[in-house]
């Protein structure tokens, strides 16, 4: 790393996830890194949270009352995670399904990955790799074709939406009883977060929600927080988490071997195919927003 610190105002002003609430010991100081800044944070049993730039006097593991910490950064609990910002954030993007009471809401895991956030988002959007990387789970040969789907950049909601995605999956979720054509909708409502909706094997009218919320450590390292919000009354939490971790564990070496690690935004930098329609929209959207952190900006 030659540069130090994030100077990208778009990224600085966003909410970023820094910890799963379920994995945070209540009333204790914990620490993490966001955009190359070392942060301390704490959450109490009542759901009060505080985040601050690390400083002497608040050491990891110390007891602390979040409400009594002064000189703090913005803090918010949403979708099972603690979010903060190094700038002035607007409202966080909505996931209305998260409020539906019959859903299982879990942090499948938070995993450190040696990749830029945009590369990881782009991989999450890609269906073409399913049969090869997630063999016999999210895809299988010879069902390798990515059929035509629609992508729009919603100006009003400021997010990317990919719809009418359909893929044959041997085992789409823990509740699957066999292979099926599965419908997908992808949202990218935040440069480093994506929300996926896919057919629920237990209720044909509803969709499971799986999100990746990426915490940028620096331009080439992330903590990937994987949120599940699914319909499943059969399986224990650990079985649902295991399914998602298995899939993420398959993606991890692919992500870590991407070169260059930062996502090139120049349309001529990498040759896309039809399956990459959502990736093309994502790169264009990042360019339009003027994102420079974690990417190689297009020249001119």
């Amino acid at each position: 790393m030659t540069e130090t610190g994030c100077k990208d105002p778009v990224i600085l002003n966003l909410w970023h996830p820094i910890a799963a609430v379920a994995e945070t010991a209540p009333g204790r100081v914990a620490d993490t890194v966001l955009l190359e800044e070392r942060l301390g944070f704490a959450i109490d049993d009542a759901g009060n949270a505080a985040v601050w730039r690390s400083r002497p006097g608040l050491a990891t593991g110390d007891r602390v009352e979040p409400l009594e910490v002064r000189d703090t950064l913005p803090a918010k609990l949403a979708y099972g995670y603690l979010w903060t910002s190094l700038g002035s954030p607007e409202e966080i993007f909505p996931i209305p399904e998260f409020a539906e009471p019959d859903r299982r809401r879990l942090n499948a895991a938070t995993i450190g990955v040696n990749v830029s956030a945009p590369r990881a988002i782009e991989n999450f959007l890609d269906m073409g790799h399913f049969p090869y990387v997630h063999t016999d789970i999210l895809g299988a040969e010879p069902h390798t074709e990515v059929k035509e789907y629609d992508v729009e950049i919603s100006i009003e909601r400021d997010e990317i939406l990919a719809t009418r995605c359909r893929f044959f999956q041997p085992m789409a979720s823990t509740t699957s009883s066999g292979g099926a054509d599965v419908d997908y909708i992808y949202r990218v409502p935040h440069p480093y977060c994506s929300v996926l909706y896919k057919s629920s094997p237990v209720d044909e009218k509803r969709l499971d929600v799986i999100a990746v919320f990426l915490q940028p450590i620096d331009q080439e390292h992330i903590h990937a927080h994987m949120m599940l919000c699914v319909l499943d009354e059969e399986n224990e939490d650990k079985v649902i988490k295991r399914f998602q971790q298995t899939i993420f564990g398959q993606d991890k070496p692919i992500l870590e071997n991407q070169f260059p690690k930062r996502l090139p935004l120049d349309p001529r930098a990498e040759t896309p195919i039809r399956a990459d329609k959502s990736a093309i929209a994502y790169r264009r959207w990042l360019s339009q927003k003027g994102v420079t952190y974690g990417v190689i900006p297009a020249l001119g």
């Binding site: 994995e23 942090n107 895991a109 224990e236 650990k238 988490k241 295991r242």
Partner: peptide, 10 residues
């Protein structure tokens, strides 16, 4: 028999 080694520390 799955063990939630991470993050559950089972």
């Amino acid at each position: 028999a799955p063990v939630d080694f991470y993050p559950g520390r089972e």
